[in-house]
Design a protein around this nucleic acid. Structure first.
Lengths: 352, 352
DNA sequence: CTGAAAGCGCTTACAG
DNA sequence: CTGAAAGCGCTTACAG
């Protein structure tokens, strides 16, 4: 039942129909009718009836303007979030973000309008629209330090997903240092001494953190020489060659995708995993594919990461529950999945 | 450069800083500065500079109230969009939506705050926030007809993804009728006469469309008796039993997931596909898993669907390029993937 | 108990 | 060329 002329339904029109003032409609609508100014049942019911009949809903823009808070959380992703290449990374985060936002009654504003430069979106640009949201979540493997600083300086409420080096940046990240250290200790305990580490070619904090955990444990164990290599990401054969040359007993591979490729090359070369060569992976694909290898691996709690980031942002936004400096920098434990690709090394000189 | 007291940035404050009136800021901001009232370059630049420095953005709610668009497109999903169970359906749509929005310079507002009732989100509720966006995209397998009608009546600009029966609803959907008809003709041409159709247990238009295409072709071919069955979705053994009892030569299965389960049961029962039994699937998983069976199947252009829905919404929103009634109801062709699971039937009485 | 009024931040005629 | 003012639809003190 809309107006015949398709006039927009407003509180004024509802008020007319109910024979009361517009303010009364607002009061009834907001429940405060009971407390502050007790509107008589009869009036109240009459208004509610009209509201029902007209299917009136308060204009959210007007509500917002009148100070009802907009409950919009921004989400900035450095790369488009949904295409397959990046979905593995973003989807589980978004799952957590969505779920927690739903609980908190917030809507999510994806800044898809941010212009792309050098294949990455820019936060700051001509018509930056960050201000549309109450605060913002930042997602991406790497983030621009200058942009983060500026955000901090501007006092714009935001939370980065993933640990960040930039001072003052609130974040919720995975504790890759401890997780990698734990897996490294497991490899040491199994008797490994010849390590090879194939990492992602990136200056991201997560990449550095994993290496830190790795190196710390090796150092404790007195192992000095370790071969490190940035995965080419396309010429896996070259990577594999480097590995065979180094002849390790255990391979630490940062990215699940790289691990799959290398595993396949190993198989083709007749190298059995883990009897000939152990493989430890420092991450996990978001969706286990049916034929996946059950790697010994680190499982970052990505969904939880997203959810906790929302919660932290919400706290930052709430005036009464402001988190302390240290509460604004949260690390969540990674789960270590024992898997089947870590075993004691063979007792020979040459392995591969 | 935010105010030390963290006061909200407004046009008034920008105006103060630039030493002009608030109205002037608005004029500069909306470009009309050139045409109507030519503001001197100098004033203009001064204002723009302050805007840049303060990273001021016009409050979207206020803009809306004042009757302007804000380049925010709403996205309403009837179920949470990211969890694994629904990701297959939503992700490719969102990929297209995101990409096209990026091109158009729009941001995406996900209505995660819509309260869930009976496991589905409700569009209309106490504090409905649809109006914050310029218009809205609706995603979901099934949509509530009453809600759609109300949206139409309210004259709210929106586009449904997927064909809808409700009059007046603009949509961009997949042409399942033609696609299914084509596959049905292929099965007929291969010599099949005993069909079994396992469909999704839903009243969705897409489900009806596929059956329409299927039945139309069978009728043309003079085939009368066809076994139809709503897939249980959990007790696949019961489904398989029903199939063996009917003893078809070709199986049409609507959902890819169901197809995988039935295929596996067939395999276990020693029924070879397609030599003993052909299987035709009327959909496609969003991500081909490595060990996937190359079903003869229908591939709906989901990414394109999302992108085109954005474009249609944009046209609806633009006053100068309003689409006609018929242009507001778009069907995109499905691709038929020949696959390997459709072959001529064996020339025997009993097959399974 | 209810109405008149101010104010949220913006756009856009309308005056100077 | 620019400012003062009305109005978008709401909420909420503040008067009656």
């Amino acid at each position: 039942m809309t107006s015949p002329t398709h006039e927009k339904m407003t509180q004024r029109r509802v008020a007319e129909l109910a024979g009361v003032s517009q303010a009364t409609v607002s009061l009834v609508l907001n429940g405060k009718a009971d407390a502050a100014s007790r509107i008589p049942e009869e009036t109240r019911n009459r208004v509610l009836e009209i509201i029902e009949k007209t299917t009136y809903v308060a204009d959210p823009a007007a509500r917002r303007l009148a100070g009802m808070g907009n409950k919009i959380l921004g989400v900035f992703t450095y790369e488009p979030a949904f295409p397959n290449e990046t979905a593995d990374f973003y989807t589980p985060l978004l799952t957590g973000i969505e779920a927690r936002s739903e609980e908190l009654g917030c809507d999510l504003l994806l800044f898809t309008s941010a212009p792309v430069e050098n294949g990455r979106r820019q936060i700051f640009h001509g018509n930056n629209r960050l201000g549309l949201a109450d605060g913002c979540l930042l997602l991406g493997l790497e983030m621009d330090a200058a942009e983060l600083s500026r955000l901090v300086d501007n006092n714009f409420p935001f939370v980065a997903v993933g640990r960040r080096d930039v001072p003052g940046v609130p974040y919720v990240g995975a504790d890759y240092v401890s997780g990698t250290a734990e897996l490294t200790r497991a490899a040491l305990a199994a008797g490994h001494e010849r390590f090879f580490y194939l990492h992602v070619d990136s200056a991201a904090e997560s990449v550095a953190d994993r290496q830190l955990g790795f190196h710390t444990e090796l150092q404790k164990a007195g192992i000095e020489s370790v071969q490190l290599r940035a995965c080419t990401g396309d010429d896996y054969l070259a990577d594999w060659k480097a590995i065979t040359t180094a002849d390790p007993t255990v391979l630490f591979i940062e990215a699940p995708r790289h691990a799959l490729e290398i595993y396949e090359l190993a198989r083709q070369a007749g190298v059995r995993v883990p009897s000939d060569l152990s493989i430890v992976v420092l991450g996990e694909p978001s969706r286990p594919s049916a034929q996946a290898i059950d790697f010994t691996r680190l499982s970052p709690p990505r969904t939880e990461l997203g959810a906790e980031a929302v919660t932290l942002l919400r706290r930052i936004l709430s005036s009464d529950d402001a988190p302390s400096e240290s509460e604004s920098r949260i690390l969540l434990d990674c789960v270590v999945e024992s898997g089947t690709t870590l075993a004691p090394p063979r007792n020979e000189g040459k392995h591969l």
